[in-house]
Design a protein around this nucleic acid. Structure first.
Lengths: 187, 187
DNA sequence: CAATAAACTAAGCAGATGCTTAGTAATAAA
DNA sequence: TTTATTACTAAGCATCTGCTTAGTTTATTG
């Protein structure tokens, strides 16, 4: 016995995520979210509680969206080659109209750093450690590597994908490809 | 026939730079600058014109400060080994009380991205291209590399130092050392 | 239909932001 | 000592921030 919502939460979240992805957390205001999501502030707060709430749900939406490439990585059985393919897939994923937006998660880690809300931070760390485990699993597929080597190479790969993610926002395609090609020379 | 300034601009700039370095540009307010620099807003605006003005001068102060390690790189005659040493020197440089602040320049590029003021951006790009040229010069010292290889390796190194710079804010020492050690196996 | 419950609109809140300005204090030349 | 010039203090400006709330509209149930 009540009125129906005039929007679907998943639909407006897609738009919110896109805005956070392009703009970062702090410099995206609730007024901007209003316009982009196409709903009133009241509705934003009714559905998501706070700006932080919208952001946390945006991270979840992001995870769903990136799943198409993390899934490929998870299913790949070709070791290091699969990881390298993931790097290229990520570049395509982060690109929109020839503008590279980087990774929403790493962008946020870098923006908020230690000042990040614990709830947000926990979500970001969980995402990163998931990627690292995918790297480790693929590294294990290459026969002769001992656990110590795998751990060290995984640390290397995490730093490298972080670099690629940030660099993608500034460097051109050729520069990024140079970086990836050399990065995988010796694994 | 006038009153004397009660502060030295270089001294208060050191403090401003430290604050921007820790906090980033946007989330450092003029009120925070007041407290940290120990002078009134009037004095800030009289000396530097705007918050952006303080920041531009902070970048210059940063460049002077980092010169001690870029200088070592410039003077080094041992090719790739000199660059690797620069990576380690940078980690030490970015560390304060076991907190890694990353690089003020790359932090800012990543924070402001395309939205950055053109004057600020030009300053940041100039810094980055200077580092790249230092890398190229050192790569040239290794006899047999052709120009194409050097260009590609320089792109790789720029992405890698970017990754290290950002990663230093999150990862622990061991992880960073793993990353550097493996990164230089590829050269 | 009338009653009720939820979703909407738009105005408004307190606090923070970058920046300015009116008034006062200190200095050095005349 | 007077006067001109600069530096200081602190209050205040308009605008933006995240968030709330009073009042209205829409739908469902009895």
């Amino acid at each position: 016995m009540a009125r129906k919502k005039q929007y679907k939460e998943q639909e407006v979240l897609e738009k919110a995520m896109a805005l956070f992805w392009r703009n970062g957390y702090e410099s995206t205001s609730v007024r901007m979210l209003e316009k982009e999501m196409g709903i009133n502030q009241f509705s934003i707060y009714a559905s998501f509680g706070s700006k932080k709430g919208v952001f946390l749900e945006s991270i979840n939406t992001y995870k769903k969206k990136i799943h198409c490439i993390t899934d490929k990585l998870e299913k790949s059985q070709n070791g290091v080659a699969g990881i390298k393919q993931y790097f290229y897939n990520f570049l395509e994923f982060a690109n929109e109209n020839n503008v590279n937006k980087g990774c929403l998660v790493t962008n946020t880690v870098n923006e908020l750093g230690e000042n990040a809300d614990p709830t947000v931070m926990a979500e970001l760390v969980k995402f990163a450690s998931n990627i690292k485990h995918l790297f480790i699993n693929n590294l294990k597929q290459d026969s002769q590597k001992d656990t110590d080597t795998i751990e060290r190479q995984a640390n290397y790969l995490m730093t490298t994908i972080l670099g690629i993610s940030i660099a993608s926002k500034i460097f051109n395609k050729k520069q990024l490809e140079d970086a990836i090609e050399i990065a995988f020379k010796n694994l």
